[in-house]
Design a protein around this nucleic acid. Structure first.
Lengths: 337, 337
DNA sequence: CTTGGCACTCGGGAACACAGAGTGCCAGAG
DNA sequence: CTCTGGCACTCTGTGTTCCCGAGTGCCAAG
């Protein structure tokens, strides 16, 4: 059905179109790639490819352009991820190594990725649900008000102000804090609800109302923040050149965190790469936009995802290489801190 | 030099141009505004206004368009801030009231502002230098490693991982924490360096090396994070309609935090509004873009600034009204939490 | 100082022609 | 059966020309 030469033609079309952004014709193909056959032959192959929906012509008598289906085939079977140059690797390493806290790691990562790919980069903060408790702090603010601070092993911090039902002295707060920490230290956030259940019993009866209030806020935090936090950068890359069409939709998607998180998607293995091409992705504003995403994490645990958005006519091998590399390095950095 | 009628003509030109986005001619002006004079008279006035640089014509025989100087005059003398409708006020209040922590306050604020003005909104996080210490926490991570967490009265949290010169037991850490907090509680961040100087003396000699390390990281945090954090939203509003020209520059500015912070600028009084029009602002990418900004804070202390970026041909009275209102409400919310 | 009149300018849209790139198809060669 | 060269055909994009209309500047009269 699709012999090797037809596949080679498709690959050539994708590559040429990506680099020139102009519909590519049979003659140009024959010239630029040495396929060893004449333009006429290529024309026949192109007709076949078009027949099967891999390419299309914007109008009669223009060159061909890959369809989403064509890109899909290209990504799946005709290309391989292009590793970064060693200079780039070093640059990533030193750039990320300078980060002092989680915010900065994420910030730097997202910028790095935007710069490497010259597209819009998106990084999801390490998932709360897959982290564990490193420390819980209760800071007295006023007589009947405390601030609850939760620090996770990924460096993420959540804070809440809690109004207590009654005044609670500092020493009782300290006790509460100690009990909380001894129970929760190292506990996976998803286990917190269970673990927390029997804490009131360990406390003197007079502290239980306050503890209950604090614990309910703690649980609330975990649930509400199930919605994940994300950062993005590189929107200026959208304005460049030929992509004014999709621009609107992409900007809108970026502002809709929910959509964006859905777009990053979830897949199986850590650091295998998801590519969603144009109409494949579940948001109508992104016609003409592709998403290349990967999970990152420390060890073999996926903490969250990151990726880039760009026009369907992007350089997939390079983009995938950059995404993969950045995902790996971020994982390392997180593991090390 | 500029009599009342000429000013009225200028005002009319700005208003018409803002609402239609088309150069406005003498006839249209005479029709839509009852200036009580004929088009010919208006033409003379327009000639005078052009002479003095308040308006300009894109090409011979087109209507007039305000220059930056024209907008400036309009903002300074010909318009007054338009207060929000009470429905809008209520909406703001309820929307902001739902926020649980600083991140969320900022996030909601910036979205709100973007939505109200239909432009790009920018909010600076409460300045570290003008906040004070609410609590300092030292969390043991490993034998020779702790996490330092600084919580300010504005709800902002800074964290750092510190490697200690030697192992320090939990009880000594606790003591250190107690001393630190008793010294620093309520202390303005700008006074921290002075206050911190004599802390080592209060500690047993064997703890001093560790304390010195921690303190130096603390000071470092204050200095480095002098660079402020910002959030923005509403970039999708850029893509709409007629502003594709400035788009590139604005997106670039948004990615350059430093530039952006400079743009928000600093002025005197809390909640008086700064307007920078087109070429007035110190970044060349923003030709054709204006910035409306204001400070916000609790009490009479300016904590930070917020504002919007939009085309010079924006509706200044409305935009200024929205910025002022949002700034006030944010101040209130921060004071209350 | 204001007004109506008038000649002038120029941008933008419509109509048109044209070159060039690209295609599909066909008939002949390997 | 596959490849190739040739050829007629079909478009788009571009450049040209033309004209309309909006808007101006100037002037002379009220």
């Amino acid at each position: 059905m699709l012999d090797d030469r037809k596949l080679a033609v498709l690959r050539a079309i994708v590559e040429d179109y990506v680099s020139t952004n102009e519909p590519v014709g049979s003659k140009a193909l024959a010239d630029r790639h040495n396929l060893g056959v004449s333009p006429a032959t290529i024309r026949n192959d192109m007709a076949a490819l078009e027949e099967q929906g891999y390419i299309t012509q914007p109008h009669t008598s223009a060159g061909r352009v890959p369809t989403d289906k064509g890109y899909r085939l290209f990504v799946d079977r005709l290309s391989q991820i292009k590793p970064l140059s060693s200079a780039e690797r070093r640059a990533i390493e030193t750039f990320l190594a300078g980060a002092v806290d989680l915010d900065e790691i994420v910030m730097r990562t997202v910028r790095l990725l935007a710069q490497l790919t010259r597209q819009v980069a998106v990084v999801q903060y390490p998932s709360l649900t897959r982290s564990s408790v490193r420390h819980v702090e209760i800071v007295p603010l006023a007589e009947r008000r405390v601030m609850l601070v939760l620090i996770t092993n990924t460096g993420r911090i959540e804070q809440r102000v809690v109004d207590l039902p009654e005044a609670v002295g500092d020493d009782r707060i300290a006790n509460l804090r100690a009990v909380l920490n001894s129970c929760l230290d190292g506990c996976g956030l998803s286990q917190v609800p269970d673990t927390v259940a029997d804490i009131p019993e360990r406390l003197p009866p007079e502290d239980r109302p306050a503890a209950a209030t604090i614990l309910s806020v703690l649980l609330e935090t975990l649930v509400e923040r199930h919605e994940e936090k994300i950062a993005f950068a590189g929107t200026a890359n959208l304005a460049v050149a030929d992509f004014s069409a999709g621009l609107r939709g992409v900007l809108e998607a970026l502002e809709e965190q929910v959509v964006l998180i859905r777009l990053l998607g979830e897949t199986g293995g850590l650091s295998d790469i998801t590519v969603r091409i144009g109409s494949e992705n579940p948001y109508s504003g992104l016609r003409g936009t592709s998403i290349v995403a990967a999970g990152y994490g420390s060890g073999d645990q996926e903490l969250a995802r990151l990726g880039v958005l760009g026009p369907t006519r992007m350089d997939y091998p390079v983009t995938m290489g950059a995404v993969r590399a950045v995902a790996r390095y971020v994982g390392q950095i997180l593991a090390g801190s």
